[in-house]
Each structure stands twice: as C-alpha cells, then as structure tokens.
C-alpha cells in the first residue's frame, strides 16, 4: 500500500506533536506506520547530525551580541544622517514645484480682475510684480541650508 502525501503528512505531524498513532495503525496497518516513523526518525537524526557537523561555530554569543548592538547603532546613525538630507531634498523639490505652479494659479470666478490687462495670479499677489520665482528660490536655498545645518548637528550628536 502506498500513502498519499496528505496521509503521510498527517502521520509525521502526529509524531511531531506527540499524538497517539492508534488511528493510523488501524487505517494503514501498523507495519507501514512503523516503517514510516522509523525511517523518518533516522532521516531526522542524520539531517541534524549533518547540520551540526557543518556549523561548528567559532564566535561566542557575547561577541556576536556586541557586534549586533554595534551594527544596530550604526544603522540608527545612518538613519539619523540620512533623514534630514532626504527632508532637505524633498523640501527643495516641493519649493521648486511651487515656483513652477504658483504663478500659473489664478483665482477663478474673479472675472473682473482676471480680465484685467495683467492677469492676476497668486504669484503676482505675493510678489507684487509676478516675480515670485526669485523669492521662492531664495526661500528654498535658506530652507535647504538650515536643514543641512540640522543634519550636521544630528550627525555630530550621533
């Protein structure tokens, strides 16, 4: 008699969990169940032995734990170093996007003003002469420098 995969899996799982095998003995015959279990236990023993022989670790747990702590701290430091730079870069992109978008945003519904000779935009309101680009670039530069300084400060603290 051959066992299907689910049948074999159930027997081996029962052995793993230490459950009684009476039901399986009745279903498949005690001889076959014994063969399955003995063969599998022998295989398990050999797999474990092969694994132990292959591992033979040299380093102590204390040394590895020390390395892990060191590595974790260096990863944290990297995150600290990195995040303000990402933030600065993001801010630069955001403000650059504003520089491009703002002058084109106009107030809808204010027909009188829109139809005026110099079409009114949010940019032109803020700059007075639609010269928002220069102002925005200046803000972006100041903002980026301040974030870069923050990054340097965090790096020196880390």
């Amino acid at each position: 008699m051959k066992l299907t995969l689910p049948q074999l899996s159930d027997i081996l799982q029962a052995v793993q969990l230490g459950k009684p095998l009476t039901e399986f003995n009745a279903l498949y015959g005690s001889d076959l169940v014994r063969q399955v279990i003995e063969g599998d236990q022998a295989l398990k023993k050999e797999i474990v032995a092969a694994t132990i022989a292959e591992l033979e670790l040299q380093e102590t747990s204390e040394k590895i734990a020390g390395l892990v702590l060191q590595r974790s701290k260096s990863v944290e430091t990297k995150i600290l170093r990195l995040s303000p730079w990402i933030l600065s870069f993001g801010a630069l992109i955001f403000i650059s996007a504003l520089v491009i978008i703002l002058p084109t945003v106009s107030f809808e519904g204010v027909d009188v003003i829109r139809n005026a000779p110099n079409s009114l935009s949010l940019g032109s309101i803020l700059s007075g002469q639609q010269n928002l680009s220069h102002l925005a670039i200046l803000v972006a530069v100041v903002f980026t420098i301040s974030l870069a300084m923050l990054a340097l400060e965090k790096r020196s603290n880390a």
């Binding site: 051959k2 066992l3 299907t4 995969l5 689910p6 049948q7 074999l8 899996s9 063969q35 399955v36 003995e38 063969g39 599998d40 022998a42 295989l43 050999e46 032995a49 092969a50 022989a53």
Partner: peptide, 21 residues
Amino acid sequence: DETGEFTEPSVFTKLTSEEIE
C-alpha cells in the same frame, strides 16, 4: 495528489554513517 515519500529504515542500516552524512 502525489505519493508520500519516506525513506525505508533498511536504507540506513545498509549504509555506513559516514556515507549517510
């Protein structure tokens, strides 16, 4: 739907432990 594979205990008695490992 495949046949469950297991190694017959006799295989282990016929090989040396070095061969098995």
